[in-house]
Amino acid sequence: METAEKQALAIHGGPFNVYYGRKQVLYDISLSIEKNKITSIIGQSGCGKSTLLKSLNRIIEEENGKIDGNIHLFGKNILTMHKEKLRKAIGMVFQEPIVFPFSIEKNLTYGLDYHYSFNKKERREKVRHYLAMSGLYEEVKGDLSMPATHLSGGQKQRLAISRALSVEPEILLLDEPCSALDMKNTLLIEELLLQLKSQYTIVIVTHNLAQAKRISDHVIFMDGGRIIETAPKEKFFHAPEHPLSVQYIQYMEKS
């Protein structure tokens, strides 16, 4: 691959394997994720899609997982990068909306204060800015000191997105961010992701095929710990190559 082409890739990895202890969970993974695009990782539960996502920011190492191989983030090897710097560059949003048991404002300043040192005015401005990015600001602006745990599920998830953005990552990983939410909030978040696409590279794990269809540019289909097919969205849904992909799409569309 040409160097210039490589530069346009946010993540370029592989081949790599992932192990939990002695048990191998991901086999021979190679992937490229394009900048400023939304890439969906789909597949049945247990196929390793969350594991793959967790490998990208090395959170998996906290669960005693081990990555063997190489993954590059804008040309830099993530396995030799400082974990904190890596994770600052790659934000992550989890399946269950996680808010820290602080006020809304403190949820955001938590990461800000760790990585930067802003003065009071700048901080307030940043908080407003990132809350506005997830569309939460208008809903909560009157009461930023409210405990974040009092928010609704959808609001919590948007706060989690704001918080992930607050440390200014270049890539945003989302692990089934909508599976705990209702339809209305799901659509809200999808819309938000489409807006964020211009500034961030987004990788989203989903088991919802319709969602992948609605928002993604590229699709990575996994099964049994391997990547089966990687393709642009249109191609994947209209002319899948691999028989497993065909089977999966048919099955999901029937149900």
């Binding site: 934000g91 989890f94 990461g111």
Partner: peptide, 23 residues
């Protein structure tokens, strides 16, 4: 809370002191 905090590039010790113990 741990992974959510680690995923922001924050150290384990900071998370323990600032999130886990207050929680």
């Amino acid at each position: 809370y741990m992974y959510a905090s680690l995923a922001m590039g924050i150290s384990k010790e900071h998370t323990i002191m600032k999130v886990i113990l207050p929680a």
